[in-house]
Amino acid sequence: MSNGDRVSKGLSRLSDLEPGKAAIIQEIDGDDSLASRLMEMGLIDGEEIHCIGRAPMGDPTEYSIRGYRLSLRQAEAKRVILSPSS
């Protein structure tokens, strides 16, 4: 549903963030338990997130947020929409 719509609008997502780059979070897609878990871990709009690097097999990816390290799969990182200005 909303997932597909937003991809077609060309919103940039955390899953597209390359290692070494940083961006600002705009919002989390959806309101299921994954969305709340992501937000509980501190992925809130306005927060800066850094992509540290990918696992040996390309997935998952290590990020730095609020001064700690978090690992997310591509599928989960897709749920994080980045602010276009970043």
């Binding site: 700690y68 390290r69 690992s71 997310l72 599928a75 989960e76």
Partner: peptide, 10 residues
């Protein structure tokens, strides 16, 4: 599949 939110502590 379930999710994989994992803290990689120092």
């Amino acid at each position: 599949q379930g999710s994989f939110l994992l803290e990689l502590h120092s």
